Computed example of a mutant assay.
Amino acid sequence: MAAKNKTSAKAAKAASKVLRDGRTSKASKTAAGSALSQAPAKRKGK
């Protein structure tokens, strides 16, 4: 069953930063990737 809760924009931004940082551990990147996979799609335009 899929989770009803979604990752907030603030948390998604932090997770993205973790993934881009080469100094973070594999476990941190796994958690960040999981958080981003649960984030709602970013809307383009207005």
Score class of each variant (00 low, 15 high):
residue 7 T to E: 01
residue 39 A to D: 00
residue 30 T to Y: 04
residue 33 G to I: 01
residue 31 A to Q: 08
residue 44 K to I: 02
residue 32 A to W: 05
residue 25 S to L: 05
residue 11 A to C: 00
residue 27 A to I: 03
residue 23 R to E: 15
residue 3 A to G: 15
residue 26 K to D: 15
residue 36 L to Y: 11
residue 46 K to P: 09
residue 11 A to D: 11
residue 25 S to G: 13
residue 6 K to D: 04
residue 16 S to Y: 01
residue 26 K to I: 13
residue 4 K to E: 03
residue 17 K to I: 05
residue 35 A to I: 08
residue 21 D to M: 00
residue 10 K to A: 15
residue 32 A to Q: 03
residue 31 A to P: 01
residue 15 A to T: 10
residue 15 A to K: 10
residue 5 N to Q: 05
residue 33 G to K: 15
residue 35 A to G: 07
residue 2 A to H: 13
residue 45 G to Y: 08
residue 12 A to M: 06
residue 36 L to S: 08
residue 28 S to P: 07
residue 35 A to T: 06
residue 2 A to M: 11
residue 23 R to C: 05
residue 28 S to H: 11
residue 35 A to Q: 09
residue 37 S to W: 08
residue 39 A to L: 01
residue 30 T to N: 12
residue 45 G to A: 08
residue 39 A to I: 03
residue 7 T to H: 02
residue 28 S to I: 01
residue 9 A to P: 06
residue 46 K to H: 09
residue 38 Q to S: 14
residue 27 A to D: 09
residue 4 K to A: 14
residue 12 A to P: 05
residue 2 A to S: 14
residue 43 R to S: 14
residue 14 A to L: 02
residue 44 K to A: 15
residue 32 A to S: 01
residue 19 L to Q: 01
residue 29 K to T: 06
residue 31 A to E: 06
residue 46 K to Y: 08
residue 7 T to A: 08
residue 1 M to S: 15
residue 44 K to L: 12
residue 39 A to F: 11
residue 19 L to D: 00
residue 8 S to C: 15
residue 20 R to C: 03
residue 28 S to T: 00
residue 11 A to E: 02
residue 41 A to R: 02
residue 27 A to K: 13
residue 45 G to K: 09
residue 1 M to V: 12
residue 35 A to W: 12
residue 40 P to M: 08
residue 34 S to A: 13
residue 42 K to F: 06
residue 11 A to N: 09
residue 43 R to H: 12
residue 39 A to W: 07
residue 20 R to W: 00
residue 10 K to V: 13
residue 35 A to C: 02
residue 38 Q to F: 12
residue 42 K to M: 06
residue 30 T to F: 08
residue 23 R to V: 08
residue 15 A to Y: 09
residue 2 A to V: 13
residue 25 S to H: 11
residue 1 M to N: 12
residue 32 A to V: 03
residue 39 A to M: 09
residue 46 K to W: 04
residue 22 G to A: 07
residue 28 S to C: 10
residue 33 G to M: 11
residue 34 S to L: 00
residue 20 R to M: 08
residue 11 A to M: 05
residue 30 T to L: 13
residue 16 S to A: 14
residue 44 K to D: 10
residue 19 L to W: 04
residue 38 Q to P: 04
residue 17 K to G: 05
residue 34 S to M: 06
